[in-house]
Design a protein around this nucleic acid. Structure first.
Length: 438
RNA sequence: CGGGGAGUGGCGCAGCCUGGUAGCGCAUCUGCUUUGGGAGCAGAGGGUCGCAAGUUCGAAUCUUGUCUCCCCGACCA
């Protein structure tokens, strides 16, 4: 993409309302624009990142055996009356009426809806297990939205729901998601710690939160230093074996957020206890028959008996992850994207767009990048070098390739690693090869 | 929902106390000079001062109402 044609409204100055790094940076980098409190439009650069995160989340869901569906954002109040949550959910739920004065709502989550789908379609134990997921916009009318995209009212969420015949099978489904979440966040370049959690309004007795460690996270977290040696990517994606030992290992060490942590009662000796800051990006629940009983979602077992489905639900805050990743990875100059979610892999800078040789070389390199299938953002604008460098640092592409008359004298380009700041000189002929995926 | 703060050009702000018809920096446009870390000079365009009512000869400025946004707290993917 040529920057001269790209819609990328970056800001030199920081909007006054943004107090935390990720909020400041998504605005400055031209990724989003606030529409109203807690509601954002996604601009090209931001949407690209959102979609990359979405793709990884989707990939790991599918790898775990889940199947993708898409449910509506607007739901009927009647379904929620069946589960009793229409009354219980409170003001967080946005309630609306259609032209016939029917009560509707903008879904804050979809347990009722999925249960309705499944109870009509699944009648036999032979249809189980099933795990269905969607990546869909949700709306929760937060008392106080803040932190930009990290705590919006409208947000993109991956939610999925497992259905099993008995509790043991349900726990296996739960464990699958536990593993899938560890892998998902690791692929996104994040260090996460699972923590035992209250089930909250969704209900149930088995629940874990996944907390991303970020120096500017919203809550303080306490965890056993042993977590630092755990490697989520090392967990092979084998889902049909017994996953309990793996889950046990990841949950054997102490971890708690500040509202749960009691320094006096903490079982970990202080030399083993680490503190940091974190952001909740995922939450999984196993709640058994809470909804299936209330809504009559049952199957016949092998013995002919009718039993309610064992269910779990699992969420990942996809749009929140955009903010969380930035909180975990930025510096004074701007964002530092992990390669897996970077909107472009490489930024190409022509420092002297008035210089014929420089422009020719940069144009040629750009064409070569495109041909090699490397995602490249080419700053071909007639701007001063300083403006181009600063802008490139701000939007945080993993690598910046600089072409200018000075390097052309010896036939080299400068490649800068955004994360490390390291600069290397590479022969022009070898630049694209350096980035092309084999 | 409790407490605090702010709405003046795309962004950041001054002006308000003490009413007299709107200003600064950045950005934008034109021209010239410049060009390896957010250039310089000259010129130009752009504002119902959140909205509504009121006081007044006259309101960005005073009064009342209202809407929106932000920050701190309790709650949340």
């Amino acid at each position: 993409m040529r920057l001269s044609k790209y819609f990328l409204p970056t800001l030199k100055e920081t909007p006054s309302e943004a107090k935390i790094a990720s909020h400041r940076l998504i605005l400055r980098a031209g990724m989003v624009r606030q529409a109203s409190a807690g509601i954002y439009s996604w601009l090209p650069l931001g949407l690209k990142v959102l979609q990359k995160i979405e793709a990884i989340v989707r990939d790991e869901q599918i790898a775990s055996g889940a199947q993708e569906i898409l449910m509506p954002t607007i739901q009927s109040a009647d379904l929620w009356r069946e589960s009793g949550r229409y009354e219980d959910y409170g003001k967080e739920m946005l309630r609306i009426q259609d032209r016939h004065k029917r009560d509707m709502l903008y879904g804050p989550t979809n347990e009722e809806q999925i249960t309705d789908i499944v109870r009509h379609a699944i009648k036999s134990y032979k249809d189980l297990p099933k795990n269905l997921f969607q990546i869909q916009w949700k709306f929760r009318d937060e008392i106080r939205p803040r932190f930009g995209v990290m705590r919006g009212r409208e947000f993109l969420m991956k939610d999925n729901y497992s259905f099993d015949l008995d509790e043991a099978a349900g726990r296996h489904s739960y464990n699958k998601m536990f593993l899938a979440y560890l892998r998902t966040f690791a692929r996104l370049g994040l260090k996460t710690i699972p923590m035992a959690a209250d089930a909250g309004p969704i209900g149930g007795d088995l629940s874990h939160e996944f907390i991303v460690l970020a120096p500017t996270g919203e809550s303080e977290v306490f965890y056993h230093k042993g977590f630092e040696d755990f490697d989520a990517m090392g967990e092979a994606a084998v889902y049909d074996k017994d996953l309990q030992p793996l889950v046990d290992r990841w949950t054997s060490l102490y971890a708690a957020t500040d509202n749960k942590h009691d320094a006096a009662a903490c079982p970990v000796k202080s030399s083993d206890l680490k503190t940091g800051r974190g952001i909740e990006v995922g939450h999984i629940f196993f709640f058994g028959t809470k909804y299936s009983e209330a809504m009559g979602a049952t199957v016949q077992g092998q013995d002919g008996e009718t039993t309610p489905l064992q269910m779990g639900s699992y969420g990942i805050g996809v749009s929140r992850l955009v903010g969380a990743i930035i909180e975990a990875s930025h510096d004074d100059a701007g964002i530092i994207w992990p390669e897996a979610v970077a909107p472009f892999q490489v930024g190409l800078i022509n420092v002297r767009s008035d210089n014929e040789a420089s422009t020719k070389a940069a144009d040629a390199l750009y064409a070569e990048f495109l041909k090699a299938g490397v995602e490249v953002l080419y700053d071909d604008r007639d701007e001063r070098p300083g403006a181009k460098f600063s802008n490139m640092d701000l939007i945080g592409l993993p690598f910046a390739v600089t072409i200018g008359p000075r390097g052309l004298e010896t036939g080299i380009a400068e490649v800068k690693n955004r994360a490390t700041g390291e600069r290397t000189e590479i022969k022009l002929s070898g630049v694209v090869k350096h980035f092309a995926k084999p």
